[in-house]
Each structure stands twice: as C-alpha cells, then as structure tokens.
Amino acid sequence: MKSRQIVTVTLCFFVSMLAGADVLTDARTRFQDGEYEQAAKLFEQALDESPPGAAGFFELGRALTKSGQEARAALNYRRALVLDPRFAPAASALQAANVALGLPASRRTWQDRVVERIPLDALTLAGTVLFWVGAFVGLAAFFSQGVRGRRLFSGVVVLLFGGVLLLVVWLCDPRISLANSAMVLTNGGTSFLTSPAEQSEKIAALPQGTLLRVLSQRGRWFYGELPNGKKGWFLTEGIVPVIPPA
C-alpha cells in the first residue's frame, strides 16, 4: 500500500515537471513569435511551477522588456541577479532597464565586486569546513600532550579564517542583504514622505524602478530606507518585494 502511494506521488511529480516544461516551451515559442505579453505570462507560470532559477527570471525580464514593461523587467532581472549575482547578461539587462527608467546608475560596492567573482554557496561551504577543521584541530591540540602551541595556533587561525569567510557571505549574499528590499512598480512612481499621511511633507519622489528597504509596515504604509540612508514612509500599493514571498 505504502509503495503504491510512493509510486503515485512520484508519477504526479514527474507529470507536473513535464507540464512545467510544456509551459516553458510554449513561452519560448510565443517569445520567438513576438507575442511578448503572452510569453511573459507563461514564463511567470513556469516559474510558479518550478524552483526559482536565474535564467527563468532573466527570460521573463526579456519578455517584459519587449512588451514595454521596463520596471517589471528590472524587477525580474534583479531577481535573476539575487539568485546568481554572476549572471552577466542579467546585470547588463538590468543596467539597460534602469537607463530606460531614467534611474541613476547605482554605485558598485565591495559586496558587488565580491559576489561577481566568487560563488557564495561554495564560499559558505569552504568557510564552514575551515571553521570546523580549525575548531577540531584546536581542540585536539589543546588537550594533546607535549609541544602543542604551534598546532593550537594553526587551529585558531584556520577557525578564524573560516569565520571571516562566513561573515563575508553574510554581508554579501543578496538573498540576505536584499531580504527586505522592494521595488517601486507604481506607474509614475511614488512619494517618500516624512510621516504616514498623504498630506505630509515629501522627502523625495521615487520613480518607477527605485529600490528601497522596507523596515516596517503600518496599515497601508511602509516605513523604509532609501539607498542613501534616508528614512520615510510610502504607500504599499505598487511596492513589490525583490524576493517573492514564500
């Protein structure tokens, strides 16, 4: 009985995978035929049905660009880069979309440079291995007999190096740093205000495609922070998180 259930579940899984592949093929065909809006819908459907992937968001972004939805395209290029910061075509497409949206070029930080060069998951594993190797070597050296200073020192150094690598991953991984980030998709942008009231003083006008960090929510209002550190309030309508909610 149990084995039959397992077989059924497995079959269902493969059938859903095949269905997802069909949607994707259809989306690509539509894209080739110039039916970009339809292609975008199908790409979205395919992404809903499969695990997130940088290439999928990139393709969706391309379809949205072709159908003139630059802001949504920029969001999906950014999502592709969150999943794979080394995805050069997505980076250049995002840059072009930002130019089309009239957004200023963002300054490259050291985190950007790190993630462009080093695969973060590999760095996480390397950091973890070094940390624990250092920890165990240090422990063994501490309780060993005889001359143990050098071994103890090596263990501590390796442990610290692994810890630094993990800290770098923590600071650089866009899945962590952009966890609370959102993008303005409202047509015509939105206003960044000093308090959660539409009549309050405007700090800045946020054009479509602006990226900001959401700190908290109060009713229809988000309290957030701009990349330049300014904090203020803005309406939740048309604000879409970079990392889709689970």
Partner: peptide, 9 residues
Amino acid sequence: AGGAASWTA
C-alpha cells in the same frame, strides 16, 4: 539556470 535555486541563502 545557474546560481541558486532557492531564495534562502
């Protein structure tokens, strides 16, 4: 797809 297949680091 290259890169990660999850939104969680």
